[in-house]
Amino acid sequence: MSLLRAQGLTAGYGPVTVLNAIDLEVNEGEIVVILGANGAGKTTTMRAVSGTIPRSGVVEFDGHDISRTSPDAIVRHGLAQVPQGRGTFPELSVEDNLRAGAITRRDGAGAVAADLQRWFEQFPRLAERRSQRAGSLSGGEQQMLAIARALMSRPKLLLCDEPSLGLAPLITKELFEVIERLNAQEGLSVLLVEQNANLAMHMASRVYLLETGRIVASGSAAELSADDTIRKAYLGF
């Protein structure tokens, strides 16, 4: 069953249209990856889905039409975004960052505290730095914090915008393992934007190829890798 469905999604900045009527679908329990070169419109897609930029077309999430919903209300429907460049609250402590992530929850302080504990166990580096300002963390730690913060809202779908950007390969690998584990164990659906095709293809249920604002190919990771022209042109292996 589809969790997120976008039809004819068009978006851009001011007079410039970046995204040209794309169709997109994420089913429950899937990890869907959007691949594309710089400027293909990957980040714009994320922003259009999460409602942070003006957009047109239809976006449905979990049975709700969210085409005209404001970003904060979309989060309350259960869609959390990890923005590109992490977007943590630099002046707030690590713990407060996580608490801010849970600000939309209505299931009581106990449940929030339990989740807090859980992510601290999952990301021990964050536990060590729980009272430090987020701004003082390293890039990898901030990325983990951003993901943990998004997860604190107990989302049904996690949008991840280039989590590997600026991270050492080893940390990227660790991060992707966490995402895969959450997907396998919790059934968390993920929509991931990546430039690093190799890594992302590995865990993707399905893949969309984006080029200058249009989807040029889609299918399972295996299908796309099997197609020679696509593999050479877009995947680079």
């Binding site: 999460s50 942070t52 404001s70 970003p71 904060d72 209300a73 989060v75 309350r76 959390a80 975004q81 923005p83 977007g87 943590t88 609250f89 630099p90 002046e91 707030l92 801010a100 992530g101 600000i103 939309t104 913060r149 998004a150 809202s153």
Partner: peptide, 12 residues
Amino acid sequence: ASNAESAKLVGI
């Protein structure tokens, strides 16, 4: 106060 854009993204 810290980051208004991100505040929207956590549902504030």
